[in-house]
Write a protein that binds this DNA or RNA. Structure first.
Lengths: 104, 104
DNA sequence: TCGAATGTTTGATTTTTGTCGAACAATCTG
DNA sequence: CAGATTGTTCGACAAAAATCAAACATTCGA
């Protein structure tokens, strides 16, 4: 549908990353990505009671924070974690967030 | 001046902690606390161009996130890190934030 | 080619956050 | 006690963030 741009991790500030990860909805999205069979997930497969506009915005936030990358496949766009890159930039942060009990 | 309450770290959510640490001004306060000789610092000793009302609010945020503890000494109140407790609750998080280059 | 599926974008609204000045409260000191 | 010092609290306000519905764009499939 459109071309997505993915920032270089060196351009992502810790504050920005923290802010992005501070929202439970976005963490839920990350969990859903990980829980998927393929490691990729489409916007409409997210288990959240949010409008698709809102979900789209959250995906954009995650993209800008260097947490996910998105590719277009037909009419859908599949997002996956940029785990290694993010880990290299902010060691331990992602595991800390994902390891937490849901809802925390 | 007043009695401060400090939450049990088990009542602090990761989201709340992340949100608190996502603000550069609050991180700057934490750095100032650490850089102090005694490990304690008063509100008015913070190297920030912010009104005392704003600084007071930031201290409150840090307190509610379990990051600092504050005690009253005469007319001033001295705040110090709850480093071990916070570390036990969110391992690695504080070091991640403090290790980052200023301004990030 | 037409309709269905999938997201994005726009415009609007509501909430939350950061900020300040001014008034207030508590405590020390002279 | 009077004044100075140190913070807190109270409005107020602006900026940012989260949210939605509706309109739009793109692509797949029949």
């Amino acid at each position: 549908m459109k071309e997505y741009t993915h920032p270089d991790l060196s351009d992502v500030t810790l504050s920005a990353a923290m802010q992005t990860l501070a929202d439970p909805a976005r963490v839920a999205i990350l969990r859903a990505v990980i829980a998927s069979d393929t490691g990729e997930i489409a916007c409409n497969e997210i288990p959240l009671q949010l409008s698709k506009a809102t979900v789209s915005h959250h995906f954009e936030s995650l993209r800008e924070a260097g947490l996910i990358q998105t590719r277009v496949v037909g009419t859908k766009c599949l997002s996956s974690l940029r785990r290694e890159e993010f880990e290299a930039r902010f060691p331990g942060l992602l595991d800390l967030v994902l390891g937490e009990k849901t809802g925390a």
